[in-house]
Design a protein around this nucleic acid. Structure first.
Lengths: 135, 135
DNA sequence: ACTAGGGGTTATAGTAACTATAAGGTCAAT
DNA sequence: ATTGACCTTATAGTTACTATAACCCCTAGT
């Protein structure tokens, strides 16, 4: 059924995740141990490919590898409620929003600093002054 | 002139940067070597305090420690143009904006996922399906 | 058959910016 | 004199990789 057709390099090409990274994921137990060819090469199936896509997409949403480990184990229990998954998504959304808030504040302050530079010398630089100084 | 009045702990209290971190900054050369008391304790002056505030504020704007090292060395050349500083700020602003873009995309996608959960079981979960699947 | 390339394999160290731990020295107060 | 809160150093751990070294395998060309 599950023909092992990909080597690690071919899997990498198809998923956009580098061979080293794939091996790393295996090492930390995020991916199951790959089956091996006679000569010791890793061999992957379509199912392995899907799992890796899951990881890539989750990473794209900012989930940590630990989070993804949990998501994968939740995903594997087909008959259970998906409340856990939903909770993880909510949690991640909250984290992303908090990070957004921080970054927006940084953006504003950087804009303010940038605007107050008048091209003089350091001694009179309002940017340096602000960074060194008050509040 | 520059009375060395702070120990590392007192400096930490005043700046909100922990003693370990202050020592770490010294170790990597971001802060100059502190003068020492007879018994070997680090002692800091108002100038040291200012420099550390500079670091903290720059960190708050997302600058890397390497960037801050450069900013500090730029700031030390009082009579030179502040163009370098301005450039660094612009650069940082660009980076923050790029990160913002990424995070906004994540936020949107997470919102979409969150909305499509209908409280069923994993088998029917659109979230899992999306993560595993297409795109 | 030999060899060169482009795979694959492992283990180890490095990255950023800290945090945690251990094992000990100092200082002010009781 | 001893407690407790501080200080000192060195080392290892964190996250998610990347880089390096040293070696093995497989296919294609001569």
């Amino acid at each position: 059924m599950s023909e092992k057709s990909y080597t690690v390099g071919r899997l990498a090409e198809h998923t956009g995740i580098k061979p080293v990274t794939i091996r790393y994921y295996e090492k930390i137990g995020l991916l199951p141990r790959a089956t091996r060819s006679e000569s010791g090469y890793r061999l992957y199936s379509k199912a392995d490919y899907s799992r890796l896509v899951f990881v890539r997409r989750s990473r794209g949403l900012g989930f940590s590898l630990d989070d993804i480990r949990e998501l994968l184990s939740l995903a594997d229990r087909q008959e259970e409620s998906c409340a856990g998954v939903d909770a993880k998504v909510e949690q991640q959304l909250a984290q992303v929003r908090s990070r957004l808030k921080d970054l927006r504040a940084m953006e504003q302050e950087l804009e303010r600093l940038s605007a107050c530079c008048e091209g003089g010398v350091i001694m009179d630089c309002r940017i340096i002054e602000t960074l060194s100084g008050e509040a």
